[in-house]
């Protein structure tokens, strides 16, 4: 309990402001090379190739999305075959009346394709968007960085690099120096 409250007293980390893409890109490469793990770049738009400069891995969104597609297709097929009450999916009254529609077979799978496709797209899109939010731990309506007035210009034309104090490599002085050496202006402590 006390430990936690002590930690709460500690700052979130350090933050430095950059004014153009090139400098923040170069700085990111240096932080990557310095072995930091818990740091981040704030930029008003996704800078091209910055993921390499930061040494980020492939996003996992694709996997979530792929799973979503599979779930959607399976769900759609199951739903349609089951409600049509056809074939092996005939499980008594649960599958509803086995109604004869225009003398077509109960499992007229050709006609089930459009809904299958649409549901696949729907669930996979959910996977992409909500997966992205999940990985990013959004929504998160509170963040220490947001309390910094200077950081509020990140959505406009400023670039930031922030290093969390929790980073094993974090050292108040060294990190500050690294920030300044890469051309950061206004290196500030971010309160927790």
């Amino acid at each position: 309990m006390s430990e936690q409250s002590v930690q709460q007293q500690e700052p979130y980390g350090l933050m430095g402001e950059y004014s153009d893409v090139t400098s923040v890109y170069r700085a990111a490469e240096q932080f990557r090379d310095a072995g930091y793990t818990m740091w981040d770049v704030g930029c008003p738009f996704p800078i091209h190739n910055l993921d390499e400069a930061m040494g980020l891995k492939q996003s996992k969104v694709a996997w979530i999305m792929g799973t979503g597609a599979a779930v959607g297709v399976a769900l759609a097929l199951f739903m349609q075959m089951w409600t049509a009450g056809g074939g092996t999916l005939d499980i008594g009254w649960l599958s509803g009346y086995r109604v004869n529609v225009a003398s077509k077979p109960l499992l007229a799978w050709e006609q089930f394709l459009p809904v299958t496709f649409e549901l696949g797209v729907l669930i996979s899109s959910f996977g992409a968007i909500f997966g992205m939010l999940m990985i990013n731990r959004l929504p998160m309506w509170y963040h220490p960085l947001m309390k910094k007035e200077r950081y509020l210009r990140v959505g406009d034309d400023k670039f930031f690099i922030s290093i969390e104090a929790k980073d094993p490599k974090f050292n108040d002085a060294k990190t500050r120096q690294l920030l300044e050496s890469t051309g950061a202006a206004h290196v500030e402590v971010v309160e927790a």
Partner: peptide, 14 residues
């Protein structure tokens, strides 16, 4: 949703 222009977010977002 608390978007803070973090590039780690941008990466997944893109």
């Amino acid at each position: 949703l608390g978007w803070r222009f973090s590039f780690r977010h941008w990466n997944n977002y893109e």
